[in-house]
Amino acid sequence: MTIRPGPRNLITDVDGILVGHAEDHRVRSGVTVVYPVARCPAAADVRGGAPGTLNIQAMDATSLRNEVDAVVLSGGSMYGLDAAGGVVAVLGTRGRGIAFGGAVVPVVPAAILFDLMNGGDKGWGEQPPYNALGRAALGAVGPDFPLGNVGAGLGARANALKGGLGSASTVTADGLQIGALVAVNSFGSVVMPGTDRFWAWPLEMEGEFGGLGPPPADWRGQAEMPLPPNYAVNPMANTTIAVVAVNAALAQGELQRLAMMAQDGLARSIRPIHTPFDGDTVFALATGRVPLSNPAMLARLGHLAADTLARAVARGVYAARSLGDRPGWRERFGH
């Protein structure tokens, strides 16, 4: 069956999903908010060895409710979890969340990446910027947004290259919509050793990350995987965090399986992945607009979500520009 990118090639091609970014360029860090227009079920899969997350258990199948009001991706390591508090405060004033009598409690899970060593001014004292950045990112949500050095991807670094914020989408002829958004801050490399080719090159659609095609004919993969600069000094300064969304109606166990399958998109685009030094986390959202007709449809959705996430990884690094000690892909390879 024919598949293609959606009209924007962004996660917002899934009907009912909006995204907003906010950055502090002096700090070299930022926040991205994924906002479902209507509360929707969510799940999360964590595979890295050094994760930083908030409210993950609220999405567990054994919990009372598993709908969320937003998902926050942030730089700033543990400081970045404050961004979720800013989003919760704003949503609460809107009456968005779980109602308990006269009280409303928004449910906002979050994941953070480490960007504290990228050269930005982190001397914020007792007032880190992330609460305000979370509010600003929520205030900026919409269907269109840029990629690269924006939001949670502003200060990200991907091995020896500048990391960034990436997104991609897939739509099918029978009405399925699959989208992915990712902040790439990986220990592993997104390019094949000794080349300028992305590991995700076989999945590229419509020249979305350069259209360079396969690696040179004489490439056989003998080159040792390059390690990021100063990795021995800062061995935990990583993490790739992502959100995938589909327009299908999924039960909680099905949504958890989707998040697990989507993680393979990181394995298709970053090597090595899920290391002791990363906190790789993937959230999954289901807006429920298309019924799940049979179990094979879930397998199909998971496969497409993984491929879409792999494309988003490459798109994020492809769009990123040099910052600090990490060259952008285009500057590094002269494209």
Rank of each mutant, 00 (worst) to 15 (best):
Asn185Leu: 11
Leu176Met: 10
Thr240Arg: 08
Met192Glu: 15
Val182Leu: 14
Pro216Met: 11
Ala259Gln: 05
Gly210Gln: 13
Val171Gln: 05
Pro216Ala: 11
Leu258Thr: 10
Met261Arg: 14
Leu154Ile: 03
Asp144Ile: 08
Glu254Pro: 04
Asn149Thr: 05
Met225Phe: 10
Trp201Asp: 09
Arg157Leu: 00
Arg220Thr: 10
Asn247Thr: 11
Pro214Val: 12
Gln252Arg: 11
Asp218Gln: 13
Met261Ile: 03
Ala262Gly: 02
Arg197His: 15
Met236Phe: 15
Trp199Val: 03
Gly175Leu: 08
Ser167Gln: 10
Gly210Asn: 13
Met260Val: 09
Gln263Tyr: 04
Val243Met: 01
Leu165Ala: 11
Ala173Leu: 01
Arg197Thr: 15
Gly179Asp: 12
Ala249Tyr: 05
Thr172Ser: 08
Pro202Met: 10
Asn247Ala: 10
Leu250Lys: 13
Pro229Asn: 08
Val243Pro: 00
Asn238Ala: 06
Gly153Gln: 03
Gly265Arg: 04
Ile178Leu: 09
Phe198Pro: 01
Ser167Ile: 08
Leu203Gly: 10
Gly175Ala: 11
Thr240Ile: 03
Asn234Arg: 11
Leu147Arg: 07
Pro146Ser: 05
Pro228Trp: 04
Asn238Glu: 05
Gly213Asn: 14
Pro215Met: 09
Val184Ala: 14
Leu212Glu: 12
Pro229Ala: 07
Gly163Trp: 06
Asp144Trp: 07
Gly148Pro: 04
Phe145Gln: 02
Val184Gly: 14
Ala173His: 03
Asp264Phe: 07
Trp199Glu: 06
Phe198Trp: 04
Gln252Leu: 01
Pro235His: 11
Leu165Val: 00
Ala249Gln: 11
Val171Thr: 07
Val244Tyr: 10
Asp264Ala: 05
Thr239Asp: 00
Arg220Asp: 08
Thr172Gly: 02
Ala152Met: 00
Ala168Gly: 05
Asn234Asp: 05
Ala173Arg: 06
Glu204Leu: 06
Gly148Ala: 04
Ala200Asp: 13
Thr195Gly: 12
Gln177Cys: 05
Val244Ile: 05
Ala223Leu: 03
Trp219Gly: 01
Ser189Asp: 15
Thr195Met: 13
Trp219Asp: 03
Gly265Lys: 05
Leu250Asn: 10
Gly213Pro: 08
Met236Gly: 00
Gln222Glu: 06
Ala251His: 15
Ala200Trp: 14
Leu227Phe: 10
Pro214Arg: 14
Gly153Pro: 01
Glu206Arg: 15
